[in-house]
Simulated assay, not measured.
Amino acid sequence: MIINNVKLVLEDEVVHGSVDVQDGVIRTFAQTQSQSPQAMDGEGGWLLPGLIELHTDNLDKFFTPRPKVDWPAHSAMSSHDALMVASGITTVLDAVAIGDVRDGGDRLENLEKMINAIEDTQKRGLNRAEHRLHLRCELPHFTTLPLFEKLVDRELVSLVSLMDHSPGQRQYADRSKYREYYQGKYHLTDEQMVRFEEDQLALAAEWSQPNRMAISAACRARDIALASHDDATPAHVVESHHIGSVIAEFPTTFAAAESSREHGMNVLMGAPNIVRGGSHSGNVAAHELASRGLLDILSSDYYPASLLDAAFRIADDARNAYNLPQAIHLVTRNPARALNLSDRGTIAEGKRADLVLAHRKGDHVHIDHVWRQGKRVF
């Protein structure tokens, strides 16, 4: 397969040329036009590496599209997978929550069904994107470690993150934001909300630190990439670094992001944060970190189409320290490197032919086609 007449977004530059794919890998690329009559005309669009998503809970929406609605597993997986590739994502780590029982049990009940669906469809070659697992471990609960130990040796586990959403710290250092979010989400009275907070604080005091140490030790022993989550202070970062974290997911302050970089951790922020212009929790905005060059990886989190949109917005914003290739690294090369996926993430000879063809139409970057390992999947 030859894709002709495209702007190739390479590691350090954008060149106008063509790419030749054979047996699922990039054989050659050139700054010239192919003369082959079989070559596909890219019509001057950008040709990018396939996007790599490290943290999305998008699959939840398809398993439980409405409260108390339980959707058939393979249908849910197929719809989720289709949305991923339509967003340009060719490698996705589906995040499943362990120990987070605050949603009335839906996530817990769906956990095994979701993981089985991911594994089965991936093994049978039914997915258009490559799906892996990200275990999101909510530390303040007695169920977390037993569930983690049950799941950690599953073949597709590629990332583990350590979360603590208890009130008064990290994402919810402002307890009024905590009350606003959870009281609204669960329709609690003031009295019920007080009891809810007290319960969460008690769980955190008993379980957070023991679970943090046990889970991080298991990841180090298995060489599984570890991520911190919502670090707010340099002290949080030092602890995360000490237990082996290589990714800092959603640091909530500039000081935490800066400290994460100083300790060699990849700073990951939400692409929706870029598109919306700020954090829905009132924490540090991703564009503020981008303006200081403190952003390494973007995640679509809850909105898959935000990933490519955010990368182009960062490149377009003159306040930021990223040109287009550097901005595209945030959703391709950098997440690949963080997981030691050396076969993808860049347009280079011998790399997987995971590719995205896109054009700008007005203010929107429109995805035309997506290939995974040379096979067109969108």
Rank of each mutant, 00 (worst) to 15 (best):
E288D: 15
D309Q: 12
V331N: 03
S79T: 10
Q192I: 05
L59H: 00
T91G: 05
Q192D: 09
Y186V: 06
N340E: 10
N211F: 11
L295F: 14
D60S: 07
L294R: 05
M163D: 13
H242E: 15
T233W: 02
I89A: 15
Q122I: 13
N58A: 15
T189W: 03
T64D: 01
I118W: 06
H80L: 02
L51W: 08
H236V: 07
K185S: 15
P167Q: 11
V331Y: 05
S75P: 02
D309H: 14
L147H: 09
P146C: 10
T32D: 10
R319V: 01
L201G: 04
R195Q: 14
H229I: 06
G278M: 10
S291R: 11
Q209R: 11
A86H: 13
R195M: 09
F254T: 15
A117W: 06
A348T: 14
A173E: 14
V19P: 02
E149M: 15
G350K: 08
D223E: 08
V157I: 11
E249F: 04
I26P: 03
H364F: 01
A256T: 14
R352Y: 10
D81I: 10
A39Q: 11
S87V: 15
G24T: 15
G278E: 08
K61P: 01
E13K: 13
T346S: 10
E112G: 03
K375H: 09
A290D: 00
H359Q: 12
H229A: 13
A358R: 03
E109C: 09
Y303D: 06
R136A: 04
A338C: 08
D81M: 06
V356K: 10
A285C: 02
L355K: 09
G277W: 07
L54G: 03
L330Q: 13
T144D: 08
Q35K: 08
D301F: 15
N110V: 08
H280C: 12
A235F: 01
E249V: 07
I3Q: 01
G244E: 00
W371Y: 12
I367G: 05
P272K: 09
A305V: 12
G24I: 05
A232K: 08
Q171V: 11
V21A: 05
S300N: 01
F378A: 15
I118F: 13
H241E: 08
D301K: 15
L83Y: 04
M40D: 04
S245M: 14
A217V: 00
L226W: 02
T28I: 01
V267N: 07
L162K: 13
D343N: 14
S342W: 12
G282S: 04
A311P: 00
S161L: 08
V365S: 03
H329P: 12
G105T: 10
R344F: 03
